[in-house]
Design a binder for these strands. Sequence first.
DNA 1: TAGATTGTTAATCGATTAACAATC
DNA 2: TAGATTGTTAATCGATTAACAATC
Lengths: 221, 221
Amino acid sequence: MEHKTISKAVISRLPRYYRYLGELLEDGVERISSNDLSLRMKVTASQIRQDLNNFGGFGQQGYGYNVKYLYTEIAKILGIDRQHNVIIIGAGNLGQAIANYANFEKRGFIIRGMFDVNPQLIGQVVRGVKIMNLNELEGFLKEHDVQIAALTIPKTEAPAVADRLVKAGIKAIWNFAHTDLVVPEDVVVENVHLSESLMRLSYRVCSMQDEEEKEKAKKES
Amino acid sequence: MEHKTISKAVISRLPRYYRYLGELLEDGVERISSNDLSLRMKVTASQIRQDLNNFGGFGQQGYGYNVKYLYTEIAKILGIDRQHNVIIIGAGNLGQAIANYANFEKRGFIIRGMFDVNPQLIGQVVRGVKIMNLNELEGFLKEHDVQIAALTIPKTEAPAVADRLVKAGIKAIWNFAHTDLVVPEDVVVENVHLSESLMRLSYRVCSMQDEEEKEKAKKES
DNA sequence: TAGATTGTTAATCGATTAACAATC
DNA sequence: TAGATTGTTAATCGATTAACAATC
């Protein structure tokens, strides 16, 4: 497949298409037009067609898109038809929340190990996965072929652990630590900065309140 | 303050500026130019100046920006100088992870209650917050002035609970459920779709691998 | 064949970057 | 005053939307 560089915005939207198509599939819908999908998803039909055409012509004129076919094609594009081996660094609540999320396995993400420094956690088993001592990390990665590491540890520890992960051959870091990681260019970092998300929420709540107060003031005058 | 509609892209970047300024402050840096900050953050100096000027002139020609002043001004813009009362719906691992994140309180987000349907969890205390039965939700919200609800429950339950929250006067939902919520236009929803984040990671890992294989093939030919 | 809907080109819109006059 | 750096306008770039010919 010709993978020219597809814009980040397009990639961002693919998982959402995938989710809606999965729901349509569950509802037994066989085909859908870009227009019908656009109404459900509240995006323009034009954007849907443009986005999909980055990867090929999945539709048929006069018919629309076959839901099941498009669903599996997007899975291929996203690489969730393959298996990914994952480890989780940090077995606190967040790490365990990830480990317990059943759908990850369904999408091909298999959790091979969890690591922590807390002696209270080491040895415990979460969803069939044993929590190991962080100092066993390098040994474990020598024995097992793991590409992805989820990093759910405090930001103070994150850069050092990220370095160790990269040295041990990890190719992607799913970073929940509240800091930016510096890694070689062939290593992928996907950030989930929850505190930033919360601040955006805060901004929007406050500006909503401000607006409403303004409206109110207008009415009163 | 004149809050014209600021673009979403700008708002998205503010928390990151805030984080870097906080680090500079900790390091005892008094002032910084847009250029120096741009080098640290790997964005253009032009963008920093444009972004900040949406909210007012915080800098000084020939001097740059006063770190402490800019830090507190961004806090004001984001609304994290005020207090927000928060409840958490869903006291599983993810809900508890949020409850345990100490910095949230530092940013003015005070957790007033947690709710769940699991009898094993109800009655437990997490970081001084009692887990209540979800059927006590409406009563609780009548007694307490809460604006924000974090929703860490399965997607099947999310829409119904979101409706209840809106009816009970909640003004913002921090949505971790893997579904889009439909709410009135004066209610804010900030989505954290972890599965979508993981799929983006998957895409990037795979296309990185593809690239490397192509490079390799090229060398061999 | 007629109707529907895609794939794709062209037009518009918005966001980013560059440039520079204003000013500390 | 000279140097530095902002605030802001203008230029560029990229992403979204509109339009329509191609075609099922």
